[in-house]
Simulated assay, not measured.
Amino acid sequence: MNKTTKKLDNNVVKALTLACEEVKQWQIGFEWLTHTARYNHFPGSLMITCVFANDDQVERAVADGLDKKLRQRIQGNLLKAGIKVKDIRRHVRLDSEQSCARQDQGDWQRRIARFEC
């Protein structure tokens, strides 16, 4: 990873860390998030996975419109870091520990690789 790419990745990490810490305080079952990106196709390749404890919490977040609020928070933090994505819905997906355990035997690397842009 060259210096420019490393700096860009650090900016993404900072923006997402801020969003993560804020959303954890919402008490909605959100646990953590991670991202992947191919920086030669950035920002189009940026994929952010927001992880909840179980499927019910994901469904509840969507039903209550908190998924939109979560995406807005992430997009706002990315914008503050100078990173603009065209359609944040394409770049943020919700998932759960429960689904990963059921479908991928808890292997998050394999699971996330399936959803990369």
Rank of each mutant, 00 (worst) to 15 (best):
E22R: 04
Q109S: 13
C100M: 13
D56T: 09
A61R: 05
K14P: 02
C50S: 01
F115I: 01
D55V: 09
T36Q: 08
Y39Q: 03
W32K: 04
R73A: 04
Q75C: 12
R60L: 15
N11A: 15
A113P: 00
K68W: 07
K80S: 12
G44T: 05
K68Q: 11
R110E: 03
Y39C: 04
H35G: 01
H41R: 15
E97Y: 00
G65E: 00
W32E: 05
K68L: 12
A19Q: 06
R38D: 15
C50V: 00
D67H: 13
R90C: 15
R110P: 00
A81N: 10
L33C: 05
A15E: 02
D104C: 14
K80G: 11
W26Q: 03
R110I: 01
D95C: 07
V23E: 08
Q98N: 07
W108K: 09
H41M: 12
V58R: 13
D104G: 04
P43G: 14
G76C: 03
D9W: 02
D87R: 15
K24P: 07
N2A: 10
R71E: 09
P43L: 11
I83M: 14
A63D: 06
K24E: 14
W108P: 12
V92I: 06
G65S: 07
I83H: 13
Q72K: 08
E116T: 10
R89V: 09
A37N: 11
H35I: 01
L66H: 03
G29Q: 14
K84Q: 10
S99T: 14
D95I: 01
G106Q: 09
C50L: 00
T17L: 01
L18Q: 07
K84W: 01
G106C: 10
R110M: 04
V62M: 10
I48M: 05
Q25M: 15
D9Q: 13
V51C: 13
L79A: 11
I48E: 03
Q75H: 08
K3A: 12
G65K: 01
K14G: 06
W32I: 02
G82I: 00
R93K: 07
V13K: 14
A81W: 06
Q98C: 09
I74T: 08
F52R: 05
A61L: 07
E22G: 00
Q25H: 15
K14F: 10
V58P: 01
V85F: 06
P43C: 13
V12E: 06
R73F: 03
N77G: 02
V92H: 06
G29H: 12
N40Q: 14
L66I: 08
P43T: 12
V58C: 15
L70G: 01
W108G: 08
L8G: 05
I88Y: 03
R102G: 13
D9E: 15
E59T: 10
E22D: 05
I83F: 11
V12C: 11
D95T: 09
A15K: 02
G82A: 02
K6C: 06
W108T: 14
L78Q: 10
A101Y: 05
D67Y: 11
R71G: 04
C20G: 05
F52I: 04
H91D: 06
K24C: 13
A113N: 12
E21G: 08
Q27F: 14
S99V: 09
Q72Y: 05
F52H: 04
L18K: 09
T36Y: 03
K84N: 06
I88M: 10
E22P: 04
K86M: 09
R110Q: 08
